[in-house]
Amino acid sequence: MGIRFDSVTVAYDGNVVLDALDLTVEPGEVMALLGPSGSGKTTALRAVAGFVRPASGRVLLGGEDVTDLPPYRRGIGMVVQSYALFPHLRVDENVAFGLKARRTPRNEVRQRVAEALELTGMAGYARRHPRELSGGQQQRVAIARALAIRPRVLLLDEPLSALDARLRSGMLAELARLHRELPDVSMLYVTHDQVEALTLADRIAVMDKARLQACGTPRELYRSPDNAFTASFVGGANLLPVTVGAGGVDFLGTELKVDTAEAVAGARATLCVRPHLVGLGEGPNRITGTVAEIQWRGATHRLYVETGGHRVMADVRELKEPPLHGEPVTLHFASEDAVLLPAGVSHG
């Protein structure tokens, strides 16, 4: 069952927090809603669940208009950041909650609870109370509880942000496995973490300032973002203001050779280069400057190079003799690694 946002607008007290969102999640697809806090991504998810009422527009589930249905008639599984496990119920009672609310026959409840706990690896904890579980275990129970009702849509609202970094990557793999085992379930995954979005999603919808900024596969958004916000938010990027010339661009008087096929000569544009694709030393497309900051990050060094009032970031393999503060250096990048974006307000 797919999800469709048809020009959904949500406003609180005249404040527009979601502006005419048009988005379709295909059946069985994992769509990540990625954006900073306050970008409207959680609001979009809550509109699907039925906890916020759109000021205008429709929400469709599997082709059916559910905009006016109360939450309890939408048949959606939902997992939130705080898990919201019922503290007065045991794990198995938590998982059975949705089934009992639907008056499912007892035998079937027992069987489906066991199934859901098995699927999430929590079968051994059925008789425990939520407060006796770790954060990661509570998360699994929350997922089991949402899956027990066999929803065709699963909404996940920042499900991993309450976990520490190591657990998070483990849970990420778990979610990917769940998605493989439940290929018919569409998932809408709200996150502010680009790694989660890039790892898990079939497609990513990038949100900012209540609006959808871009939507595409992780590869598309990473390799060829359509705007500066997407470029910097998905993966981080150097965004350099340039003027388009013939067969290249001009950056502060330096000629850089990049693909300008889609740009108009003389126009202002933004050049996007990922930091890890910027090299230190001589090469094509040279940029010179002085080292403003250097950070050792274990396997790599991150250089911030000051040039004409701009800072260019470069991630290079750990250096034996890193340059000193204020030392002049030369950076370079390959033409095919740069993407030319229309000039916009730089978020970087």
């Binding site: 039925g50 906890f51 939450p71 939408r74 599984g77 939130v80 919201a84 019922f86 609310a101 009702i149």
Partner: peptide, 14 residues
């Protein structure tokens, strides 16, 4: 915390 009642509603509880 309204999250509890919302979780219950999303699970289909009237």
């Amino acid at each position: 915390d309204p999250a509890y009642e919302q979780a219950a509603a999303s699970l289909g509880a009237r």
